[in-house]
């Protein structure tokens, strides 16, 4: 079986990458960082060319990931390398935001729009801002000149060579396992036209949405609606593309066929993801809620600061507060 990437290229990539990254990791007074970056860049470029060349072969049906994928992948990987090689934590966090946004681009290419936008809002907007706050709060005030402003914690990496070798050995193993398991030239497991492939089937569970779309397209009157089943779903055949409509007062039914099917009636990413999350995995939301609640309580308990006060001080504070409370408001009385 021919693999999607030749093992020789993969192993060369691992060696080049390990060498480049161990040079690029921060060291005091190191002049080798640009050389390391060039090595890393050439390693990734080699793999990209290999994938592009393999995608142009007739064996794979000429299906490649497209130009945008290469662009986003380059930004994501370059920024993530900068996350771990930049000596200043604030810049690392900013590069991490760049990684997030580039991987959101890849999510959009994969048709996962909702997750992409949620990721931008939650990761880049909330989590990383918290990180930035903590970085700025928990950093010593800079002393001295530009060069020794960074202390050894940030300016010197711990065991860069061993770390890089271990990481890239792991990378090679993961790649061999992942890429060796999928066959070259195999199309996706489900193709359009398969009897099991009905992306719009979830619409049968959303009769109100179908009602709304049909009403907007003037296909049903005001007192008509999609015929409901006993479970609350609509009578809707995604394969044959027919919808059964009932008249709410007369009780008569008619069928809208494939000829009149409105164009905008299709289940998007949001419809299907929402149905999957709320109907197929409802427990997930409960568990996530409990995890978030516990994290909130835990963070409050961990980070709270004990304020030691003398008893006399406490009494004084209490007296001042109770004295301030019942003071009559001057404006209304006089």
């Amino acid at each position: 079986m021919e693999t999607l990437i030749s093992p020789i290229i993969l192993y060369t990539f691992c060696v080049l990458g390990a060498a480049g990254l161990s040079l690029a990791l921060p060291r005091r007074g190191s002049k080798l960082v640009p050389i390391g970056m060039i090595l890393l860049g050439s390693a990734f470029a080699m793999v990209a060319v290999s994938f592009a060349w393999r995608a142009s072969e007739p064996l794979t049906g000429g299906a490649g990931p497209g130009l945008f994928f290469y662009l986003f992948a380059a930004i994501a990987l370059g920024a993530s390398i900068r996350v771990i090689t930049h000596p200043r934590p604030v810049y690392s966090a900013l590069y991490f935001i760049m990684t997030i946004i580039a991987s959101c681009g890849m999510y959009v290419l994969l048709g996962a729009e909702f997750v992409a936008f949620a990721l931008v809002i939650i990761y880049a907007g909330a989590i990383l801002i918290t990180y930035l706050f903590v970085i700025m709060l928990a950093t010593q005030a800079p002393t001295g000149t530009e060069d020794d402003m960074l202390d050894d914690t940030d300016a010197v990496a711990r065991e860069p060579v061993v770390g890089s070798i271990v990481g890239f050995v792991l990378m090679g193993l993961i790649s061999i396992m992942l890429l060796g398991g999928i066959e070259t030239g195999k199309p996706g497991s489900i193709k359009p036209g398969d009897p099991g492939f009905q992306p719009d089937a979830v619409l049968a569970s959303l009769p109100v949405k179908v009602d709304k779309v049909l009403r907007r397209a003037n296909l049903i009157d005001a007192d008509e609606r999609v015929l409901r089943t006993e479970g609350g779903g609509g009578v809707f055949d995604a394969a044959a593309r027919t919808i059964t409509i009932e008249h709410t007062e007369l009780g008569t039914t008619r069928v809208i066929g494939a000829d009149n099917w409105p164009e905008e009636l299709s289940a998007g990413n949001l419809d299907r993801l929402g149905w999957n999350l709320l109907h197929d995995h409802p427990m997930t939301i409960e568990i996530a809620g409990i995890i978030l609640l516990m994290a909130m309580l835990g963070a409050t308990v961990l980070a709270r600061k004990h304020v030691e006060l003398e008893d006399s001080l406490k009494a004084e504070q209490a007296k001042r507060l109770s004295g301030a409370q019942p003071r009559p408001s001057g404006g209304g009385a006089s």
Binding site: F51, P65, F168, M171, L179, I182, G185
Partner: peptide
């Protein structure tokens, strides 16, 4: 198809390795 899936998996593996390092 597999030829499109593979580069995504490679990027994922590389990003994981970089995070680990």
């Amino acid at each position: 198809p597999a030829s499109v899936l593979a580069p995504y998996l490679f990027v994922s593996a590389a990003m994981f390795a970089i995070g680990l390092i």
